Computed example of a mutant assay.
Amino acid sequence: MQLTLEILEKLALQHGDDIAIEDASTQVSYSELVTAVNALAVALQSKDPVPGSRVGLCAANSMEYIVSMLAILAAGKTLVPMNCHGTSEQMLQILMDTHPGTVLVDDIGDALVKSEDDLKIPFSQFPGLVLTYRDQKPAITS
């Protein structure tokens, strides 16, 4: 939803270089977070332009997981959470039940989700997507 992006942009204006999220090895500022969320949202809309379409997310908790959830919402998509501690059979059943147009995966999710590679966007592609789409904003969806 655009509300997600509006809130993030306001936070970035107010807090800019302050740390928004961090883990043991990385810190991301509010400005960097908005850039990453915008870029991934644009990438999701480019891959599947249908508003409200489903996007699976099969990954362990991480900074990329947070960015993914925010980007899915900012793109106007429907989040389909997938348990990265499940089995490949369970992941297949979720895919068959929900028919996502895209699935975002970390290394664990990539191994679990047995599907065509063009369905998946691995977290390892995020830096390239941010570079590609960093100056764009997702289309407004209703």
Score class of each variant (00 low, 15 high):
residue 63 M to K: 01
residue 64 E to N: 11
residue 64 E to T: 11
residue 64 E to D: 13
residue 65 Y to N: 03
residue 66 I to V: 15
residue 66 I to N: 06
residue 67 V to T: 08
residue 68 S to Q: 10
residue 68 S to V: 12
residue 68 S to R: 00
residue 69 M to H: 04
residue 70 L to W: 07
residue 70 L to N: 05
residue 70 L to V: 04
residue 70 L to H: 02
residue 72 I to Q: 00
residue 72 I to W: 02
residue 72 I to S: 06
residue 72 I to D: 04
residue 73 L to D: 07
residue 73 L to E: 01
residue 74 A to G: 02
residue 74 A to W: 03
residue 75 A to H: 05
residue 75 A to L: 09
residue 76 G to P: 08
residue 77 K to M: 12
residue 78 T to G: 04
residue 78 T to S: 12
residue 79 L to V: 10
residue 80 V to A: 03
residue 80 V to K: 03
residue 80 V to D: 02
residue 81 P to I: 09
residue 81 P to S: 06
residue 81 P to L: 10
residue 81 P to T: 12
residue 83 N to L: 10
residue 83 N to A: 11
residue 83 N to V: 00
residue 84 C to F: 15
residue 84 C to K: 07
residue 84 C to W: 14
residue 84 C to H: 12
residue 85 H to P: 07
residue 85 H to R: 14
residue 86 G to W: 13
residue 86 G to D: 04
residue 86 G to Y: 13
residue 87 T to Q: 07
residue 88 S to R: 14
residue 89 E to Y: 12
residue 89 E to A: 15
residue 89 E to D: 14
residue 90 Q to T: 15
residue 90 Q to V: 14
residue 91 M to E: 09
residue 91 M to A: 15
residue 91 M to Y: 07
residue 92 L to A: 14
residue 92 L to E: 03
residue 92 L to K: 10
residue 92 L to Q: 05
residue 93 Q to L: 13
residue 93 Q to F: 15
residue 93 Q to I: 13
residue 95 L to F: 10
residue 95 L to E: 01
residue 97 D to H: 12
residue 97 D to E: 11
residue 97 D to K: 12
residue 98 T to F: 13
residue 98 T to Y: 14
residue 98 T to G: 08
residue 98 T to D: 09
residue 99 H to W: 15
residue 99 H to C: 14
residue 101 G to F: 09
residue 101 G to I: 11
residue 102 T to G: 04
residue 103 V to K: 00
residue 103 V to S: 07
residue 104 L to F: 09
residue 105 V to Y: 02
residue 105 V to E: 02
residue 106 D to C: 06
residue 106 D to P: 03
residue 107 D to P: 09
residue 107 D to W: 05
residue 107 D to K: 11
residue 108 I to F: 13
residue 108 I to R: 12
residue 110 D to C: 10
residue 111 A to L: 10
residue 111 A to S: 12
residue 112 L to H: 02
residue 113 V to E: 02
residue 113 V to N: 00
residue 113 V to Q: 00
residue 114 K to W: 09
residue 114 K to P: 03
residue 114 K to R: 11
residue 115 S to R: 04
residue 115 S to H: 06
residue 116 E to P: 03
residue 116 E to V: 05
residue 116 E to R: 08
residue 117 D to W: 15
residue 118 D to A: 14
residue 119 L to G: 08
residue 119 L to H: 13
residue 119 L to N: 06
residue 120 K to Y: 10
residue 122 P to Y: 00
residue 122 P to K: 06
residue 122 P to C: 04
residue 123 F to R: 04
residue 124 S to H: 07
residue 124 S to W: 08
